[in-house]
Design a binder for these strands. Structure first.
Lengths: 335, 335
DNA sequence: CTGAAAGCGCTAACAG
DNA sequence: CTGTTAGCGCTTTCAG
C-alpha cells in the first residue's frame, strides 16, 4: 500500500541499499545517482518508514516525558522545553500523565520501554518503592529526574537551585524589615525539610537579628493554601510576611487575605515560587522566585540525548539551574 | 542484547510463534503451555518489542497531538483529555508544538507520518495553504481538527458549540439590563465573523430592544486585550459590559479596568470564554462560558481511534460539544 | 561506487 | 494445539 524503498529502487533502476545510502549518509554514493534517487523519491512522495529503521538501528528517536499532570503550568512549561530540545535533534516526545500514581507511572514506563524510547524524563520517582526504583534504574535506557536531587544517586537529575531560592526569599523579606514571617509549604517529607524550606529557614535563623519563622505544612495547591493561610492568621495575627512554596499556593493566600479584608502588600507581604505565567496577571502582581522551567525541560532532554549516545558510560549526571528573584508588587516594607 | 521472543521460546522449549500466541490472543494455545510461556517470559523479564510488532501489523498504537503551544492552558487541558483517551486503549500520544508556524507544522506532520502514527489531532490547519491542506488530507492517516468546524470538509472535527456560547453570553448581559455592550476579539478573519462572535452579535441584534454592540478586533492575548480595552473605553465611555473572546483576554480587560480605576463588576461587567482554571482564582472571579476542553481532547482521540480501525470508511465525522455559562462575580445588573 | 544478502523482532498464514 | 515459513521496510556488512 504505502510506497517503500523498494519502489524507489525499482523506479530509479538501482538497488535498495543504494537508495538507503543516498537518502541517509550521502557519502559513498555517486552524486548523480544520489540526485536521481532523491528526485524519484520526491516524485513518488516517498516517506521512509522510521519504525522499520528503528528496528534495525535500535534507536527510536523518541523520548518519554512522564509528569504528574500536564495541566500544571509548571509542567507545561517544562514540556515545551523538552519538546523543543527533542525537536532540535529530530526526535519527538511522548507525553504521559501519572497523577503521581505509582501504578500508572509504572504502566507508562513499561509501555514506553516496549516502544523502545531512547530515554525517559520524569518528574516523580518518589512515589515508587525501592524495588520499582531498582527496576527503573536497570531498565536499559537513560532516565533523568526533574527536581529530585536528593532522592536517588542511581539517576541523573536536572533541578533548579531550590535552596538558593529559599535564601533569596528570606533575604528579600529581611531586607524589607519583616520580623514575623511564615512559610507555607506542602506535605511534610517525613521529617526532612525540602531544599526550598531549608534555604529559607536557615537564612532567617542566621540573620543578625535571627527570626524563627512559623512553618505550616499542607497541600501543594490553591485550596490547601487558602485554608492554611486562614489557620495561620487565626493563630498568628502578628505575621507580616508569608513565603508560599509555590505560586499557586500563593494565590490561595491572596484569596484568603482578601476574604479577611487584609491588603497585600499593605497589611501582608507575600512571596511565591516558580514564576508561572499568571503570577504577573493576578492582583497584586506577585513577587516570586523564578524557576527556569523551560530551560530545565530543555536541559533534561539534552542530557538524555547525550546519555543515549554513549551506551556504555552509564554514569549519572546532575545539573542544577539558577533561580532569580522577580520583584513585583506583593511585598512592601514593614511599617 | 535485550532479550527477545526467541530467548523466551528457547527457554520454554516451544516455537516462537507459540510464544507470540501465548502472549497475545491467548486462545488457540494450550492453557498449560501458555502458563509456562508466561512464567518464563516473566522470569526473563521479557519486554516485547512494539516497534517490531508495529512493523508487521502496520499499527503503531500512537497518535500525534499538534497544538500551537502546550503552555496555553486550553491546550494543556485538551492534551490531558487526549492522553487519557489514548491510554484507555493502550496507545500513547506524541506532543508537537507548532506555534502556528506552517513550516514547523508540516515538519511535525512529516515526522510523525514517518513514524507511522495511527492518527493526528491538530489544532490549526488554517495557517496552511491549499496545497498543504490537500497533502494532509491525502496523507493516509486519519486527522481530526480541533475547533475548526467551518474550515474544511475534508477533515473530521471536534469543536465546542461556539455559536451557542456567544448566544449565552449575550443573553446573560441582556438579562442583567445592559444596553451598551462591547465585544473584544482576535484578528478579523477576512470579513467572516467567528461562530462565537456571530452568536453574540446576532442575539443582541435580535433582542426585543435590539442592541448594536461595538466589536473590536485585536490579538487573542493578555496584552492585546489590555490595549484593546483602553482603546474601547477611550472612545466609548458609555459601555457597561464587555464580552471578551477568551479568558486570557478578559484578564487583560480586568487589568485595564483596574488601571483606570474602574471596578468590576460595579462599573463594568465582564464575561469571558473558555473557563480556564485561573478564571476562578482571579479577582473578581470571572463569569465565563465553559468549554469542555478535556472532553474535546478525549472525544477527538476516540474519534481518531475509530477512524483508524475502519481503514476503508474515510468519511469525515464531526462532533460538537455543548458549552455552559459559569456565573461568578464579574457581572452585575446595570443600574 | 554499487549490488547481494543477512537480519532487526515480531506476526500471520499454512501445514501438520 | 503447535511448528515452519515468509515476510514487514529498512540498514549494514561483505563482495565485487
Amino acid at each position: 500500500m504505502a510506497i517503500t524503498i523498494k519502489d524507489v529502487a525499482r523506479e530509479s533502476g538501482v538497488n535498495i541499499s543504494t537508495v538507503s545510502r543516498a537518502l541517509n549518509n550521502g557519502y559513498g554514493v555517486n552524486p548523480q545517482t544520489r540526485e536521481l534517487v532523491l528526485n524519484v523519491a520526491n516524485r513518488l512522495n516517498y516517506r521512509p518508514n522510521r519504525v522499520a529503521r528503528g528496528l534495525v538501528t535500535g534507536r527510536s528517536h523518541s523520548f518519554a516525558l512522564i509528569v504528574s499532570d500536564i495541566r500544571n503550568p509548571f509542567f507545561a512549561e517544562v514540556a515545551r522545553g523538552a519538546a523543543d530540545a527533542a525537536r532540535s535533534d529530530k526526535c519527538d516526545l511522548v507525553l504521559c500523565n501519572s497523577d503521581l500514581d505509582p501504578i500508572r507511572q509504572m504502566e507508562y514506563v513499561k509501555s514506553v520501554l516496549e516502544k523502545r524510547v531512547d530515554g525517559i524524563l520524569m518528574n516523580s520517582v518518589a512515589a515508587l518503592n525501592p524495588e520499582e526504583q531498582r527496576q527503573l534504574a536497570e531498565c536499559g535506557v537513560p532516565i533523568v529526574l526533574l527536581n529530585r536531587s536528593a532522592s536517588n544517586r542511581a539517576f541523573s537529575t536536572v533541578t533548579a537551585d531550590n535552596e538558593a531560592g529559599g535564601v533569596l526569599a528570606a533575604q528579600h523579606l529581611l531586607k524589607l524589615g519583616h520580623r514575623h514571617i511564615a512559610h507555607l509549604t506542602g506535605p511534610r517529607q517525613h521529617g526532612n525539610m525540602t531544599d526550598r524550606t531549608r534555604g529559607f529557614v536557615q537564612t532567617l535563623l542566621a540573620a543578625p537579628e535571627p527570626v524563627n519563622p512559623v512553618v505550616l505544612y499542607g497541600a501543594f495547591n490553591y485550596e490547601g493554601c487558602r485554608d492554611l493561610t486562614n489557620k495561620l492568621l487565626d493563630h498568628h495575627p502578628e505575621i507580616t510576611a508569608i513565603f508560599a512554596a509555590n505560586d499557586v499556593m500563593a494565590f490561595g493566600t491572596v484569596r484568603a487575605a482578601m476574604d479577611r479584608g487584609l491588603r497585600i502588600p499593605d497589611d501582608l507581604s507575600l512571596i511565591g515560587f516558580d514564576n508561572i505565567e499568571f503570577s504577573s496577571v493576578i492582583h497584586p502582581p506577585l513577587t516570586t522566585i523564578h524557576q527556569p522551567k523551560y530551560e530545565m525541560g530543555y536541559a533534561a532532554v539534552e542530557m538524555l540525548m547525550g546519555l543515549a549516545k554513549e551506551k556504555n558510560n552509564r554514569t549519572p549526571e546532575s545539573r542544577v539551574l539558577g533561580v532569580e528573584l522577580i520583584e513585583r508588587q506583593s511585598c512592601a516594607e514593614r511599617h
